[in-house]
Amino acid sequence: MVAEIVVTVIGRGPTLSQELKDEICTLLNALEDVKIESESVLSVRAQDYFLTTSKDASSIRKLVDSFNVDGADIVAQENSKFRKEKGLVVFDMDSTLIYQEVIELIAAYAQVEDRVAEITERAMNNELDFKQSLTERVKLLKGIKTATLYDEIKAKLRVTKGVPELCRGLKKTGCKLAVLSGGFTPFANYMRDNLELDYARANVLATETDSQSQVEVLSGYTLGDVVDGECKAETLLNLAREYGVSVESTVMVGDGGNDLPAMAVAGFGIAWNAKPKVQQAAPSKLNTESLQDAFYIFGYTDDEIAELLK
Rank of each mutant, 00 (worst) to 15 (best):
Thr207Phe: 00
Tyr199Pro: 10
Ala306Tyr: 07
Val163Lys: 02
Gly71Ser: 05
Leu166Asp: 08
Leu149Ile: 00
Ala202Met: 09
Ser211Tyr: 09
Gly269Leu: 04
Asn273Cys: 12
Gly11Trp: 02
Asn189Trp: 02
Ala117His: 01
Thr209His: 01
Ala233Phe: 07
Arg192Val: 02
Glu121Phe: 04
Pro276Ala: 10
Ala281Trp: 11
Leu177Asn: 11
Leu105Ile: 10
Leu197Gly: 08
Leu16Asn: 09
Asp56Ile: 07
Met1Lys: 13
Asp129Cys: 03
Val6Lys: 08
Gly11Lys: 06
Lys154Pro: 00
Val278Glu: 04
Ser181Arg: 06
Val215Thr: 13
Leu308Asn: 13
Arg12Asp: 06
Ile24Arg: 09
Val112Asn: 03
Val163Glu: 05
Leu141His: 06
Tyr109Phe: 11
Phe130Asn: 05
Gln214Leu: 10
Asp228Trp: 08
Arg158Glu: 10
Thr96Phe: 05
Arg115Thr: 10
Asp94Pro: 14
Glu118Phe: 03
Val90Tyr: 09
Met263Pro: 04
Leu291Trp: 04
Thr8His: 06
Lys86Asp: 07
Arg192Ala: 08
Val116Lys: 01
Pro261Leu: 03
Ala264Leu: 00
Lys21Asn: 15
Ile119Glu: 05
Leu309Asn: 14
Asn68Ala: 10
Gly267Phe: 02
Ser43Phe: 08
Ala155Met: 01
Val102Thr: 09
Glu127Met: 13
Thr135Pro: 00
Phe298Leu: 15
Lys84Gln: 14
Thr146Pro: 01
Glu78Pro: 08
Ile119Leu: 12
Lys156Gly: 00
Gly183Lys: 01
Thr207Met: 03
Ile305Asp: 11
Gly244Trp: 12
Lys21Phe: 09
Glu230Arg: 11
Thr148Pro: 00
Gly182His: 04
Val6Asn: 05
Lys62Asp: 13
Thr8Arg: 03
Ala123Tyr: 04
Leu239Ile: 03
Leu28Lys: 01
Pro186Met: 04
Thr15Ala: 13
Ser219Gly: 01
Leu286Gly: 09
Asp129Tyr: 02
Lys131Ile: 06
Glu104His: 01
Lys310Ile: 15
Phe268Gln: 10
Arg83Gly: 07
Phe268Pro: 00
Tyr243Lys: 10
Lys176Leu: 12
Ala123Asn: 04
Phe82Tyr: 15
Glu196Gln: 14
Leu197Val: 11
Ala178Glu: 12
Tyr296Gly: 03
Lys310Arg: 15
Ser249Trp: 10
Met263Tyr: 03
Glu85Leu: 13
Val69Gln: 09
Gly244Thr: 12
